Simulated scan of single mutants.
Amino acid sequence: MSLPVPVTGVVGACLRDARERRMVLPKQAADALDIGLPALLALEEGTSLISPAALETLTGLYRSPDDAALRLLLVRHFGRDGAVVRDREPGHARRFAACADSAHLIRWQSTVILPGPLQTPHYARAVGERPVPRTGAPRATSGSAVYLVDERVIQRGGESARLMARQLDHLQHLLDSGTDIRIAPGTRPLPQPAGHLVELHLPGGPLWARPGPGHVDYFGTSGFAAAITASLDTTDTAYTRDALKRAAHAHHALAAEPGDKQQATTGARPCP
């Protein structure tokens, strides 16, 4: 039987995240299921499908709030290899964050608003997003990330030019600190529908996610991988720095005008 990718990857990443945040050793979890350590790691890596009974045991051990949502993912998509998985249950943002934490490589492409990890709190509130609360033991992220952003995203002024100016200052600081941010020239728009597309390389293999309002869609396969690679090949650090500086200068100039309600470029709010 083929495994229902990407269900196995999502469930496995959430289980690993919950175990580590509760500081439960892998052997303790394996003993709770009466299985060997390699079998437990296979569940967490998404290379083996967990049974509903084993899922209940582990979520109970970890005191995880995601038991019901993960069960629904299993029930709805059992055996459907390559299906699109829509997670619209409460806590979907937390589960997406767990997948991102488990990834050793993330390639995030955005055409409308800035990716969540790049947002300032004020920008996040303006676009209707909220930071994901992370409880329990802190977990070091080992993955590397690339953020590919359409240039038109940083040209949108929003209702407050000052808000966007501060956001752009933050992006420049992140870039100077080593964050891999790429700005795709507006003359070459990113080849995807409006929104985010996130490529997550999990231990069990890659999957793709498209966060949306109130849900996250997961894909086991995607034709966007080659498009992301091609887009990255057309970007460079020098252009990114210049684009950020130009956009920041424009928004700071607008922020200095009376009323701080001037709109930049398109006049659109920084949201979908």
Rank of each mutant, 00 (worst) to 15 (best):
S2I: 12
P6L: 09
P6D: 06
V7F: 13
G9S: 12
V11Q: 03
G12K: 13
A13E: 03
L15M: 12
D17H: 14
D17E: 11
E20H: 12
E20A: 04
R22C: 09
L25I: 05
K27V: 10
Q28Y: 04
A30L: 09
A30D: 06
D31R: 12
G36V: 06
P38R: 09
A39C: 00
A39W: 01
E44Q: 14
L49G: 07
I50H: 05
I50A: 05
A53Q: 15
A53D: 15
T57K: 15
T57R: 15
L58F: 05
L58Y: 05
L58T: 08
R63H: 09
R63T: 07
D67A: 15
D67K: 14
A69Y: 02
A69N: 02
V75G: 01
R76D: 11
R76A: 04
A83Q: 01
V84I: 08
D87E: 07
R88L: 09
A98V: 03
C99A: 15
C99Y: 07
A103H: 11
H104P: 06
Q109T: 08
S110Y: 00
S110G: 06
V112A: 15
I113T: 13
G116S: 15
P117M: 06
P121K: 07
Y123A: 02
R125C: 01
R125F: 05
V127M: 05
G128F: 02
E129F: 01
P131N: 08
V132C: 07
P133M: 12
Q155G: 13
G157L: 07
G158Y: 02
S160H: 06
A161T: 04
L163E: 08
A165K: 04
R166H: 13
L168V: 07
L168I: 10
D169G: 14
H173M: 10
L174T: 03
G178T: 14
T179R: 07
A184C: 12
P185W: 03
R188E: 11
P189L: 10
A194Y: 04
H201C: 11
P203T: 12
G204D: 09
G204L: 11
P206E: 06
L207I: 14
W208G: 13
W208V: 14
P213Q: 10
G214S: 01
G214V: 01
Y218V: 08
T221R: 09
S222H: 08
F224N: 00
A227G: 01
A227K: 04
I228D: 03
T229L: 11
T229G: 15
A230S: 12
S231M: 13
L232N: 06
A238G: 06
T240M: 10
A243E: 03
L244G: 05
A248C: 12
H249F: 08
A253F: 15
A255H: 05
A255G: 10
P258C: 01
K261Y: 00
Q262K: 13
Q263I: 07
A264T: 01
R269K: 05
P270Q: 02
